[in-house]
Structures are given as structure tokens and as C-alpha cells.
């Protein structure tokens, strides 16, 4: 709360129109299922400029992460090599406001699954 806070939209940021295209590009248009992919992100970001996220998809070849409400949604793509001990990875990302973070995993059999999680970005500033 307070002076100089950047103007943020009140409502959660809607998914950017590019999101569907980016997913289609990653999957080659294949159907995307659910399950087998875990996306972990905080309910409320401590800082929208550095939000910790983790993805885990046992057996995946690669996992793409998108910030659906950012002006440009791509975040990262993790490609797991032969020596990856798990298909788990963590990083820190920028979120322009409250929105859904989306992960899509390409599984070993060539199928695709997705998971998403809403992260709230708040002005904050009060307390007990």
C-alpha cells in the first residue's frame, strides 16, 4: 500500500491470446491431457519480479512454462537430457500481475499434459 505503487489491473490478467498458439506450436497441435505434471507456485507472490516456480513431470522429455497474463507469455522450456535424475526443475519468474502460470509437458511417449496455478500479485502493505 502506498505512494508510487505501479498501477496494476484489479482483476486477474486474462490469458494472452498468444498462449493457445504457443501451446499449439509446442505440441504440434496434439491433444493436451491432464495428470503426471505438477506445477508448484506460491498462492501470493512475495515479489512479482521474482516468483519461484517448480515443475515436475516424471518421464517427461521437456516442459514449457508460460505466464498466461504477461504481455509476452513465454517463460522457459526445460529439456531434460540423459543424465537428468528427475524431470524436475525450478526457476524464478516475472509476473506482471495476478494471473495463471501454465506448464505443458511433452511426455516420453510423445503425449502432452498441462497444469496451471494462479499466482496472486498484490500491492500489499498492511498487517497485524
Amino acid at each position: 500500500l502506498g505512494a508510487g505503487a505501479a498501477l496494476m489491473t484489479i482483476l486477474p490478467l486474462r490469458a494472452n491470446a498468444a498462449v493457445d498458439d504457443l501451446i499449439a506450436e509446442f505440441t504440434g497441435g496434439a491433444e493436451v491431457g491432464e495428470g503426471g505434471l505438477t506445477l508448484t507456485a506460491p498462492e501470493i507472490a512475495e515479489n512479482g519480479n521474482t516468483v519461484p516456480i517448480s515443475v515436475s513431470a516424471p518421464g517427461a522429455a521437456s516442459i514449457m512454462v508460460l505466464a498466461a497474463g504477461n504481455p509476452t507469455p513465454p517463460v522457459a522450456t526445460f529439456n531434460f537430457g540423459p543424465l537428468a535424475a528427475s524431470q524436475d526443475a525450478s526457476t524464478r519468474i516475472r509476473l506482471a500481475g495476478t494471473q495463471d502460470v501454465i506448464a505443458v509437458a511433452k511426455m516420453a511417449d510423445g503425449s502432452f499434459v498441462r497444469a496451471s496455478q494462479t499466482v496472486k500479485v498484490t500491492i500489499g502493505g498492511c498487517g497485524g
Binding site: 509476452t72 513465454p74 522457459a76 522450456t77 526457476t91 519468474i93
Partner: peptide, 8 residues
């Protein structure tokens, strides 16, 4: 890993 501008 491919990193995009949304990485902190």
C-alpha cells in the same frame, strides 16, 4: 533450458 525475458 531456453530462457525468455520473463525469467527474473
Amino acid at each position: 533450458v531456453t530462457l525468455e525475458p520473463a525469467i527474473s
